[in-house]
Design a protein around this nucleic acid. Sequence first.
RNA 1: GCCUCUGUAGCUCAGUCGGUAGAGCAGUGGACUGAAAAUCCACGUGUCGUUGGUUCAAUUCCGACCGGAGGCA
Length: 323
Amino acid sequence: MNNKSQNSKKIPAVIIAGPTASGKTALSVHLAKRLCGEIVSADSMQLYRGMSIASAKPDESEKSGIPHHMLDFLDPGESYSVAQYTKDAKEIIKGIHERGKTVIICGGTGLYIDSLLNNIDFGEEPDSSDLRLLLQQRLQKEGAEALHRELEKLDSEAAASLHVNNTGRVIRALELYMLSGKTMGERLERSRRFESPYAPVYMGIDFINREALYERINRRVDIMLEKGLCEEARFYMNLHGKTSRQAIGHKELFPYFKGEITFDEAVEKLKTETRRYAKRQLTWLRKNTSIKWFFRDEYQTEEEFFKTVENFTSKELESLVQE
RNA sequence: GCCUCUGUAGCUCAGUCGGUAGAGCAGUGGACUGAAAAUCCACGUGUCGUUGGUUCAAUUCCGACCGGAGGCA
């Protein structure tokens, strides 16, 4: 948004981000109708076929005729990653733009959104699953400190920035160096070498009162349960892959199915985990100073809220095109 | 009615042989480049149920009262 002559060549992209249950879906559909747009989901769980209740995937009536992309195309057994996402979404966006439609990116997975917008190049990497397994075994046998010490020798910069207990990342950094000989810093630099093809209008939904968000979350979990979340979770219990098994809304119910905790305990846990997730989403988004925030609880009605966001968006898009 | 146990952070509970107290969870803030709905880090003052007494000093000892659990009749 700071260099207009460059922006003129770029693809305008409207982004709706925000914590879970903040009302992103309804807002994005509203904007898509007004701006003649198509929606690209940026949600690591809505990618999967099924799992619709837990991931709060919009149904046909919620979509109300607006084309939605990056939704419902993966088998729950398949794993996925940011790298894959940026590649896939980039193609989709190109298509939307060529069709003369407005690109609207909507979702709660901050890493996906930002990697896409910044045109991060994750490069080609050999399959690391064997090595990762090996490192995970070493973690079991030798402990977290041993791995961290090894990383210190190979990539001291990464080691310094990673806590010993953050074993997932330590393993990833080791893996990266062992497979490619590159340090995390080198990779970071390399990944940003291509300029972004997008001119973003980046908006976030938040609440003045955190409590208001939490009440929405609690209510939404109850609604999900009424819609049959238990049945869905039970169905997918043994079908999940390593990505989809992380879905909040399924894994919290498993201990209940196994008789380890009561139903009420599981529901409480589910609500708590969802609230904590929302908090993490906000932490991610807050550091991005280019986001224009709209506070949902500042508006009496949904219409008023939609209208305000819509006006802002149109104005921003206009100023992008005018150059 | 009597007896025993119990009342400490939002919740579950430690603890102080008398010098005003600390864990887990929750909550808040933060980090984040191939599992991100994941992973990890930091942050702990609260009338120690109420009220009297003993004491230089009581959340801690003693009494009464109030609440909770159990037992005996």
